[in-house]
């Protein structure tokens, strides 16, 4: 068998498939392990770009606006995501502070920017930017390390722990962050490695 454009290997179990044109609104799954290999959505690239840019814009609100506010009688305490991230910044805990910053802000943002770098030119029919391939590869590598959605569940748990200690209210950043989590999940359902890489190949050739 020769290596060709339509020959695709499953990234999970190495099974070979011959994938030609994929019909609209269908998913091609690996015959052996059921991993989604290709998604037939003609506007997938455009949707990913739109969703990724929305998430990126919301991210600026998240970093700069108050996230949660805590009131206990006359005492008030406000925390932004930035403060949350810096909460381990003293002594031996400092590395943890950096790690939390990476998981919650830096890596999600880096991943969105890498995706946009690789796919934005495609969505407007232009030639891909330099390094588009490397960026796309990194977007995929970073995926398990971007933990914004886990942070949201952490917020929910913290809210319940504090419920009888003080009154809590959510700031604008909280709702932006919730929106980002939802948008990112929606975006990831549009992505399939084979489809995106084929689109990038086609754009590079023309």
């Amino acid at each position: 068998m020769e290596a060709g454009d339509d020959l695709v290997c499953c990234p999970v179990c190495d099974a070979l498939h011959r994938v030609g044109e994929v019909d609209d609104d269908t998913r091609v799954r690996c015959i052996r392990c059921n991993t989604v290999i290709a998604v037939g959505r003609p506007e997938a690239i455009l949707r990913i770009v739109v969703l990724a840019s929305t998430a990126l814009i919301l991210m600026t609100i998240v970093v700069f606006y108050p996230f949660l506010e805590l009131r206990n009688g006359i005492f008030t305490s406000k925390a932004s995501v930035f403060q949350t991230v810096m909460s381990f910044s003293e002594g031996v805990m400092a590395p943890l502070s950096i790690a939390v910053a990476f998981f919650v802000i830096v890596l999600p943002v880096a991943r969105l920017m890498a995706l946009l770098w690789a796919l934005f030119p495609l969505s407007i029919g232009a030639k891909p930017l330099r390094g588009a391939r490397t960026m796309l590869r990194w977007a995929e590598i970073l995926k398990p390390w971007a933990m914004a959605e886990i942070f949201m569940v952490g917020v929910a748990v913290a809210l319940i722990k504090l419920a009888d200690l003080a009154t809590l209210s959510m700031g604008p950043a909280f709702w932006s962050f919730a929106a980002i989590v939802f948008i990112t999940a929606l975006k990831d359902t549009q992505m399939s490695k084979h489809s995106i890489w084929t689109a990038l190949d086609t754009a590079q050739r023309t």
Partner: peptide
């Protein structure tokens, strides 16, 4: 997947698959 435990893999075919972009 549960029914098809056997498949022609890239290795069987004398090829190596890329885990990042699925090309062989």
């Amino acid at each position: 997947g549960a029914e098809n435990l056997k498949a022609l893999t890239a290795l069987d075919a004398g090829l190596v698959g890329c885990r990042h972009c699925t090309r062989v």
